[in-house]
Every structure is written in C-alpha cells, then in structure tokens.
Amino acid sequence: MIQSVPKPAVGKPKGKLGLKRTLIALSFIAPNFIGFALFTLIPVIAAVFMSMTEWSGGADIKWVGLQNYVNLFTVPQRYIDRLENPNFFSILGLFFEKVDIGIALKNTVTFTVITVPLTMIFSIALALVLNKAVKGAIAFRAIMFFPYVSSTVAICVCWNFMLMKNGPINQLLMLLGSNFNKTWTADSSMAIWAVIIVSVWKSMGYYMVIYLAALQGIPRELYEAATVDGANKWQQFWNITLPQLRPTTFFVSVMLVIGCFKIYDTVALMTGGGPGRATKMLVTYTIDEFNASKYGSACAIAMVLLVLVLTVTILQFRMEKKFSAD
C-alpha cells in the first residue's frame, strides 16, 4: 500500500533528521505495535486463510478452497428428497430448519431483532426519567448501571435459578394468572426469551448513560419555544426529543446490533445453545466446531460473522455521511 506523507512543506521529514524522527516515532509505537501485530493482526489475516483449509490440529493441513463454505451452506440431499414439492422456497425453509448454520443465523437474527429495540426502549425510558432533576440521581444511575459491570457468570446462574420451574419468576407469573410452570432454559420456545431478558437487563444501563448524555445536549430553548407554542409534553417528546436523539439512536443501534451478532457468554452460560439447537448462535456454533477440532470449518463460520459485522459497520459509515449531508 502506498501512503502519501502528510502535506505541510515546512517540517516535512527529510534526510538524516527525518530518519531520526521516524526512529523516535517508531520507538513510541513499537511496544504496542509488536504485541498488536503478533497477537491480533497476524491471527486476523490467518483466519481468512484458515477458513479455506481442512485441519484438525495435526501436521496435515489441507487446502480446500471454498469447500468449507459450500459444506456449511448445503442442504443435505436426504432432506430435499423428502420434500413433496422441492422449489427454492421450500429448500430455503429447510436450510433454516435443518442446517446448522441456517439455524444459527436464524437464532442470531431473531435474538438481535428482539433484543435491540427492547434495549433501546428501556434505555431511553431510563434516561428520560433520570434526566429530570431528582435527588440522588447519581445513586440511581449507579444502580441501573450495575448489571453491566457485574460478572456474566454470576448473573447468568442467578437468572437461571430465578427462571427455574419453581423459581421466583414463575411464581410471580402465577400470581398474575399464568400457568407456565416449566424451566425457561429447558423449554425450546422460552429459552431464547431467557437469554433476551438477561441481555436487555444487563445492557440497558450502559445505553442509558449514552442517551442521558445526548438528552443533556438538547438545547433547552427548543422546549421553551415549544411550550410557548402550546405543545404538550407528549408532543414535545415526539417532535423535539426523539428527532434530536436520532444520531445517538443510530449509533446505539449499530453498537447493539454488532453486540447481538457476537453473543456467546450469556447463551453458553444459560442454555448452552439448547434445548436441542433452539438457542444455537453463530459464535456458539463456531465454538462447537472448534471443540470438535474442525478448525477450518470453525473459521469459516467466524468469517460469516465477520461479514455480517462488517456489513453493518459499512452501512453505518454510509448512513452517517448521508445524515451529516442532510
């Protein structure tokens, strides 16, 4: 890659002096860059290549090109044979129902689509409440932030117990008239909700802080002018607060989506990807393949994750440019 040296004509590094300067600069960067290059940069590049090999950790690495990807995304013939009317859509349906990567994609996207809006609604609500001048605002803020800093292992086991058959949550629901009396994480339709609840609960305080900062940045004159014009609180919220929060909401949604794509800890600790494959996510699948010593295939799944994350990141840049152009 050719990079043009920064422009200013004065002070442009030249000759011996330039060399000395470069050496000094490199001495600043070296301690971090050596570690970074060895332990991050090289593995990132290696991941792309490894996804095109077949390797179980031994001496024999086999180059297989895109075969890992083909294997991942192929619907086994035996399923297609059983179809009465095999067409594109029925095969696509099979892909999301039977094929591991299809299930993992479906679960990951389902989880993301539910968790992102819920977290945003809760964090905006918390921020709006805390933005009022209240005594003890700092204490309340710290309380709501606390789940975010507490260890995932401890809170997951606690929630697991609370969501047990005879645990406090089911007891509470019973008081409200529900007759659900199964352990959430062992029930194939409720397991994903257990993961969603914990994820929203854990991260809402974090995004609340970001929203709180954004709310404080909204000029007060806007509200004063609206009050003079006779707008009620509700109208003010829809016509001033929400539009003013738009850049923040955009940023938060991107962070949340990427965070949801990468979900692993909560799932591994609460459901282990089960029951069956009900909460199997992309990263859960990668780790499963990794534990089975199928390194090539594990890397290919990781690349699918990378493509998803990079797509969202690039979209973010595009949209941000558009926003600032408006």
Partner: peptide, 20 residues
C-alpha cells in the same frame, strides 16, 4: 491497521490466535 481491526470481532480470529 489499528482502525481496521477494531471493526473485526475477536470471535472472528480467536481460533488462529489460539493455535498461534
């Protein structure tokens, strides 16, 4: 180089890193 890897989730390269 630094900027580019910020966007790459650790989960995407943890396996080559592990082997290294």
């Amino acid at each position: 180089c630094y900027i580019a890897t910020i966007a790459v989730p650790w989960q995407a390269y943890m396996i080559p890193q592990f082997i290294e």
